[in-house]
Design a protein around this nucleic acid. Structure first.
Length: 473
RNA sequence: GGCCCCAUCGUCUAGAGGCCUAGGACAUGGCCCUCUCAAGGCUAAAACACGGGUUCGAAUCCCGUUGGGGCCA
């Protein structure tokens, strides 16, 4: 019986979770959920100078928001590299004892000098193995290097890229443990993956170059090499690495822009992975269909327009109650008065869902439901506040005061009757009403608006508009 | 600079030698629908980087060139 899949996501808490990291997390999580395996979260905080507790919290918050729950990891102890130094030390000593690693006393100055010489001769610098046979005593300050085979080559079997072969002549006896006793990144990763029994290493393609030397380390340690899958990078529109200067890149920033977690997952999954022509995937769809075989090899450009389209699809699909709840904080942040209640907000959200691509947009569009217009759009009034506007407002007010049924159909009936009676088009009366209620000539269907606002509020706004036309004329 | 990876419409992608006069989606233009704005429907324009092979046949396989990305410095 094959052992079950164990995958991990191993972010460094040196910044917020960005979209590239989120997608790596997603692919790992999907493989685990698809294969009923185990998804491990490990915090790679060995870089003490750049890692912070705040970023760790932010990382966990982003993962939770996305719903990428981990089976093993914090807060359980032992899943942060800073808690694992003893483990690295033990493995380093094992390698040393087995003669697979050796002490090196070359100073940074010596190495710099060698590097400069190599550069001067236009050669690539590689550690020449000075200390390999020197038997440097433990009492002297020393780093620890992996003794790699001088001859031959190492082949990385990558699920996405096939076999990647690197000649040992290209590789160094790289440093496992620095002179100050701290283990290096590549060494920690190997030891962690080995001790956490990771079966599939799914990570960004930027790690492919480090993989041959890691493979050598697995072999020196005598452990089986995991299955590797180096997934393509996410690039900005200019095909360079995504960075702050390209705008929002962190998961939490997109959340604050009004992106739904469903949309984030959906869009990220479709960057580099596909399932025929399908564009919209729920979390369940992704789990059901995800496979490494359909992950592409080419880097992908992050396209905010398509991302917003996907978000819009999810805004259109979510139940009104959930949408209303998601919208709440955005209304508050926009400084709008609190809605009457969640059920009413659910009615407000209904016509907006096909007009708003983000929750921020939706909050803007919802503003007039919560607050009467403070001003009327000049272009709109210029077009519709003509000679007959005051008397038409007066008529609308009179007829609406007498109107009992406030459902959209009944209201439309009333308006159509009035328009016909006056020899007008429906649009004329509709736009006058729209300006009064929303301040503009663009809004959801006006009879729905009237219905949601209610009779009293509608009349109040019509009267305010009637007064304003009087002044304007 | 050395090594590694990658290469289908502007973008995300389908495509695993004949199903391809290359399909879908975003964005863009047009038309329809319509109380406005949307949404939706229909439609148009838009790609196999280039050059050699292999093969009866290549977007698909091989080599090279070019371009992009990554790692090491």
């Amino acid at each position: 019986m094959p052992e079950s899949v164990r995958v991990r996501f191993a972010p460094s808490p040196t910044g917020h979770l960005h979209v590239g990291g989120a997608r790596t997390a997603l692919f790992n999580w999907l493989l685990a959920r698809h294969d009923r395996g185990v998804y491990v979260l490990r915090i790679e905080d060995t870089d003490l100078s750049r890692s912070t507790e705040d970023y760790t919290r932010s990382l966990l918050e982003a993962l939770r928001w996305l719903g990428l729950d981990w089976d093993e990891g914090p807060p359980t102890p032992g899943y942060r590299q800073t808690e694992r130094f003893d483990i690295y030390r033990a493995h380093a000593e094992r390698l040393l004892a087995a003669g697979k690693a050796y002490r090196c006393r070359c100073t940074p100055e010596t190495l710099d000098a060698l590097r400069k010489t190599a550069e001067a001769r236009k050669e690539t610098f590689r550690y020449p193995g000075t200390c390999r046979e020197a038997n440097v005593p433990a009492s002297e300050p020393h780093a620890l290097r992996l003794a790699i085979p001088r001859e031959g080559e190492t082949v990385v079997h990558d699920v996405i890229r096939g076999d990647v072969t690197v000649s040992h002549a290209e590789l160094d006896d790289w440093i496992l443990v620095r002179t100050d006793g701290t283990p290096t990144y590549n060494f920690c990763v190997v030891v962690d993956d080995v001790t956490m029994k990771i079966t599939h290493v799914i990570r960004g393609n930027d790690h492919l170059s480090n993989t041959p030397k890691q493979v050598l380390c697995y072999e020196a340690l005598g452990y089986p090499v995991p299955i590797f899958a180096h997934i393509p990078m996410i690039l900005a529109a200019d095909k360079t690495r995504l960075s702050k200067r390209h705008g929002a890149t962190s998961v939490l920033a997109f959340r604050d822009l009004g992106i739904l977690p469903e949309a984030m997952l959906n869009y990220l999954a479709r960057l580099g992975w596909s399932h025929g022509d399908q564009e919209i995937f729920s979390r369940e769809d992704l789990i059901a269909h995800f496979d490494l075989a359909h992950v592409g090899a080419a880097d992908a450009v992050f396209d905010l327009e398509k991302f917003k389209w996907v978000n819009h699809q999810w805004i259109k699909r979510l139940p009104a109650e959930r949408l209303a709840r998601e919208l709440g904080p955005f209304l508050e942040r926009a400084g709008l008065p609190a809605p009457r209640d969640l059920a009413w907000l659910g009615r407000v959200v209904e016509p907006l869902r096909e007009r708003a691509r983000t929750l921020v947009e939706m909050a803007e569009q919802a503003a007039f439901y919560l607050k009467a217009p403070e001003a009327y759009d000049p272009q709109s009034t210029a077009k519709f506040w003509k000679e007959h506007a005051p008397e038409r407002y007066a008529l609308l007010i009179k007829r609406l005061e007498a109107q009992e049924a406030m459902d959209p159909e009944a209201l439309e009936g009333l308006y159509r009757f009035l328009a016909a009676d006056l020899g007008l088009k429906l649009v004329d009366l509709a736009q006058l009403t729209r300006i009064a209620l929303t301040g503009k000539t663009a809004s959801p269907p006006i009879f729905e608006v009237v219905s949601i606002l209610g009779k009293a509020e509608t009349l109040a706004r019509l009267k305010a508009a009637a007064a304003a036309v009087g002044l304007a004329r």
